[in-house]
């Protein structure tokens, strides 16, 4: 449309109510960008929601107090670059026990020295007969049953003269699901494992039944249940529970290798795998900080400390087969990787 003089008719400013001018357009652009940013953040939020839920429920756990001397606390973060010690606990939560009162079949002290990328692992036999921090003496696997992680930590600290900075607990199902989530795990079985009395809880569905298992020796790529058979069986081995501890330490080396290529995008899947089967007093930030550290550790820098006779002697207490500690021997072994508290 044009005027009689042939000039195009100028639109008057303010005639179109939706024409907000350059300033308005700038605001509109900012609002649109903000909308996209919020939408993207929401997408990321929902992606990491399982991680956040787990962070709230299962990490940064306060250690409940078991005695007046040890009030419940969240573990403080050790100074950056300083060595720290984690007590790894594994439980046979195979439906035979009340979930809050289970023994720890696995107790491994792990000391990490970030500056040198050295790792020391000490397996504590479950049958070791020790004074408990809660009073009396029992097999050390009962410490967790009686007083949870706080009792397990204080018993280990009291008997082994070490300081424990953190603990992490994982259930059998959690370990199986974690390995499956990783797609499987490479391990070298150091011997044939034959067990005619392997619990039929996970694969057989019978917490009180047994089944026969066989794990053939040598390199292999295993899914969770088969890998668990290798590290859980203890009957057909001259070293009994000690051999199982050695195999568990090997599995930790394998897990570290399998986790080498993980990224932050893998966290929700891993967390879902460990759903309810994992808790720790490490905070999520501390766990995240450990990931790059774990990637810098080679298997040659992992030092396995194993208790063997004469670190203990076989005997009977409270009508049970137990291991009686030889504390001077054990202290000497502990001192090879863990400073005295």
């Amino acid at each position: 449309m044009s005027t009689a003089s042939g000039q195009p008719r100028r639109r008057r400013a303010g005639v179109r109510p939706d024409d907000a001018g350059p300033r308005g357009r700038r605001w509109a652009a900012i609002l649109i960008a903000l909308g996209f940013a919020v939408s993207g953040l929401l997408g990321a939020f929902f992606y990491f929601l399982p991680v956040l839920t787990t962070a709230l429920h299962d990490t940064g756990q306060a250690r409940p107090a078991t005695d007046p001397k040890r009030p419940g606390v969240v573990a403080p973060a050790p100074a950056a670059g300083r060595p720290f010690t984690v007590l790894l606990l594994g439980s046979d939560n195979d439906r035979k026990f009340v979930a809050s009162h289970i023994l720890t079949q696995t107790m491994i002290l792990v000391r990490v020295v970030p500056t040198t990328h050295q790792v020391y692992m000490l397996s504590i036999p479950r049958d070791l007969w020790v004074p408990l921090s809660t009073g009396g003496s029992a097999k050390i696997d009962a410490a967790y049953e009686i007083g949870g992680p706080a009792s397990a930590i204080s018993t280990v600290e009291q008997d082994f003269h070490v300081h424990v900075d953190y603990y992490a607990w994982v259930g059998l199902n959690g370990l199986v699901d974690l390995i499956d989530r990783l797609g499987g795990i490479n391990l070298i079985a150091q011997m044939p494992v034959l067990d005619d009395f392997y619990p039929a809880d996970l694969a057989g569905g019978d917490p009180y039944g047994y089944r026969r298992i066989v794990v053939l020796p040598g390199p292999q790529f295993d899914q969770g249940l088969h890998a668990l058979e290798y590290v859980r069986s203890r009957h057909g081995d001259l070293l009994g529970d000690i051999a199982r501890s050695i195999r568990q330490q090997e599995l930790l080396v394998d897990l570290r290798a399998a986790g080498h290529h993980l990224s932050v995008a893998d966290l929700p899947g891993l967390v879902s795998a460990l759903n309810g089967q994992f808790h720790t007093d490490l905070g999520l930030g501390q766990i995240s900080a450990l990931l790059p550290l774990a990637q810098g550790i080679t298997s040659a820098n992992v030092h396995n400390l194993i208790m063997l006779p004469p670190d203990f002697s076989y005997g009977t207490a409270a009508s049970e087969s137990v291991l009686f500690p030889n504390w001077p021997q054990i202290q000497a072994l502990v001192a090879r990787g863990f400073p005295s508290s």
Binding site: F36, S39, G40, L41, L42, G43, A44, F46, Y47, F48, L182, G183, G184, H261, L262, S263, A265, D266, G269
Partner: peptide, 16 residues
């Protein structure tokens, strides 16, 4: 876009 971010993060997961 939000859904795309969600899917992109999923795509960044390690493929086994």
């Amino acid at each position: 876009f939000g859904l795309g971010v969600w899917r992109l993060l999923g795509a960044l997961q390690t493929r086994y």
